[in-house]
């Protein structure tokens, strides 16, 4: 299980100013979609990503049709396309392309927090592990844990947040784990930009 050590900072956030309100909602273990949409002008900045458990997102159902469609376009190997061939493969049944799982994880991150963040993008992925196959009909949840947050030395108006993303199916089995940095504007830089 990811760390739940953020409960202390969570309590602090609840008493903080309006500026930190989006995180309070984003960290609310998946019950975040409607409240986030209701505050469209708020942006998550570097300061909203202290080390600790950030949030849980989903569930996201993955259908057989989308597994087949992605595989046909990007990864047309028998274990992603054909039930019969897949049953004889090492993964013992139809499974999604690992890149499809990565792409779905990205969509869950955009819906969960990246789309609401003052993000300047990601330079890459430190490490990604495919741990178990993604099967048709799986319901995915995504846990985000901030491992490190530091101000950029070369561009001090930004910060680098390194997070661990863990995708699990409904049975709680870990399917994919990723460690990746994202670059975020700092709150003061956003305020300065808005002040013109």
């Amino acid at each position: 299980m990811p760390s739940r050590a953020s409960s202390g900072s969570h309590a602090r956030r609840q008493s903080a100013s309006d500026a930190s309100r989006p995180l309070e909602i984003a960290a609310n273990n998946g019950h975040n979609q409607a409240p986030l949409a209701a505050i469209p002008t708020m942006k998550l900045t570097f300061e909203d990503f202290p080390p600790g458990h950030f949030g849980r997102f989903g569930p996201r159902r993955v259908t057989r049709e989308e597994i087949l469609a992605f595989a046909a376009e990007f990864d047309p190997q028998p274990m992603h396309l054909d039930e019969e061939a897949a049953s004889k493969s090492m993964l013992q049944g139809l499974s999604a392309s690992g890149w499809h799982l990565c792409s779905i994880m990205m969509r869950m991150m955009v819906d969960g927090f990246v789309g609401r963040a003052a993000s300047l993008g990601s330079p890459g992925v430190n490490e990604l592990r495919w741990l178990a196959p993604l099967r048709p009909g799986d319901d995915l949840t995504l846990d985000i844990e901030v491992m490190e947050a530091r101000v950029s030395r070369s561009r001090p108006e930004t910060g680098i947040v390194t997070f661990k993303a863990l995708v699990r199916n409904a049975a709680g089995q870990a399917l994919c784990e990723m460690v990746s940095p994202i670059i975020l504007a700092r709150r003061a830089a956003i305020a300065a930009e808005q002040a013109g």
């Binding site: 993964l91 330079p123 490490e127 990604l128 592990r129």
Partner: peptide
């Protein structure tokens, strides 16, 4: 070949 266990050092 077997299924890939993952990758490292991906850079855009």
């Amino acid at each position: 070949w077997g299924p890939s266990p993952g990758f490292r050092e991906l850079r855009w």
